[in-house]
């Protein structure tokens, strides 16, 4: 129940959206996030989008980790 999963918004209808998580479609309330549009990634929790997922931040973290990986590889 306390699980939140990443999902992508498929369509928006007022403050409700259809979102897809690993191919399964769920309904999600958009009351807590602003300017949501199809294609945005969100965290789905108990029927609500509780936060947008930031692609830039995700890339940044991965880049940092990969750099760490590369420096290890070259040792």
């Amino acid at each position: 129940m306390c699980l939140s999963i990443p999902a992508v918004i498929v369509s928006v209808n007022g403050n409700m959206a259809e979102v897809s998580a690993g191919g399964t479609i769920f309904k999600a309330g958009l009351h807590m996030i602003e300017n949501a549009k199809a294609g945005d990634y969100i965290l789905l929790h108990a029927g609500f989008a509780i936060q947008k997922i930031s692609e830039e931040e995700a890339e940044e973290t991965l880049k940092l980790l990969k750099e760490m990986k590369d420096s290890l590889n070259s040792r």
């Binding site: 129940m1 306390c2 939140s4 309330g29 009351h31 807590m32 108990a46 029927g47 609500f48 509780i50």
Partner: peptide, 11 residues
């Protein structure tokens, strides 16, 4: 539920 679930109840 915690702070993750309670806002949904509030909405």
């Amino acid at each position: 539920g915690f702070e993750t679930t309670a806002p949904g109840t509030a909405v």
